[in-house]
Simulated assay, not measured.
Amino acid sequence: MEFCEEVWQALSTQNIKKLPPTQEIVAECVNGFHRRGFPQCLGAIDGCHIEIKPNTTDATDYYNYKGWYSVVLLALVDYRYRFLYINIGAPGRCNHSHIYNPSLLKKVLTED
């Protein structure tokens, strides 16, 4: 929670874009990646594990394949490393596809 609070304090004054992105934002991102040698790319997506100390009742859900307890941060960034989407809090045992498949990001990318 301390990490989340710090991120919120640091970013709360920034102009955070909402989903779905506008056509202008999509075009800017695709063109930016194209200039860097990645044609037809909207963003780069990856996840990372943030170590936690879970309640004993929830511990098995948060035990990850690396051998420790965590929550997963899954993020999509644009060609300038600006966040386009952030999902944080999934239990550490979840892989990225288990987080992405039910996400708003997937819904927006497949429906819009």
Score class of each variant (00 low, 15 high):
residue 1 M to A: 13
residue 2 E to P: 00
residue 2 E to Y: 04
residue 3 F to M: 08
residue 3 F to Y: 14
residue 3 F to R: 11
residue 4 C to N: 05
residue 11 L to M: 11
residue 11 L to H: 09
residue 12 S to G: 09
residue 12 S to A: 05
residue 13 T to V: 08
residue 17 K to E: 07
residue 17 K to I: 06
residue 18 K to H: 12
residue 18 K to C: 11
residue 21 P to F: 02
residue 21 P to M: 03
residue 21 P to K: 00
residue 23 Q to P: 01
residue 25 I to F: 03
residue 26 V to P: 02
residue 26 V to W: 00
residue 31 N to H: 07
residue 32 G to K: 05
residue 32 G to R: 03
residue 33 F to C: 07
residue 34 H to G: 12
residue 34 H to E: 15
residue 35 R to A: 10
residue 35 R to C: 07
residue 37 G to S: 08
residue 38 F to V: 10
residue 41 C to Y: 00
residue 42 L to K: 00
residue 42 L to Q: 01
residue 42 L to W: 01
residue 43 G to M: 00
residue 43 G to N: 04
residue 47 G to A: 10
residue 49 H to I: 00
residue 50 I to Q: 12
residue 51 E to T: 01
residue 54 P to W: 10
residue 55 N to I: 02
residue 56 T to G: 10
residue 60 T to S: 14
residue 62 Y to F: 14
residue 64 N to K: 09
residue 68 W to I: 05
residue 68 W to G: 15
residue 69 Y to I: 02
residue 72 V to Q: 11
residue 76 L to I: 09
residue 76 L to D: 03
residue 77 V to K: 00
residue 79 Y to C: 08
residue 80 R to G: 04
residue 81 Y to G: 04
residue 84 L to T: 02
residue 85 Y to S: 05
residue 86 I to V: 15
residue 91 P to S: 08
residue 91 P to M: 02
residue 96 H to R: 12
residue 96 H to I: 14
residue 99 I to F: 09
residue 100 Y to T: 06
residue 101 N to G: 02
residue 102 P to A: 06
residue 104 L to K: 15
residue 104 L to C: 14
residue 104 L to R: 15
residue 105 L to Y: 04
residue 107 K to A: 12
residue 111 E to N: 14
residue 111 E to D: 13
residue 111 E to K: 14
residue 112 D to W: 06
residue 112 D to S: 11
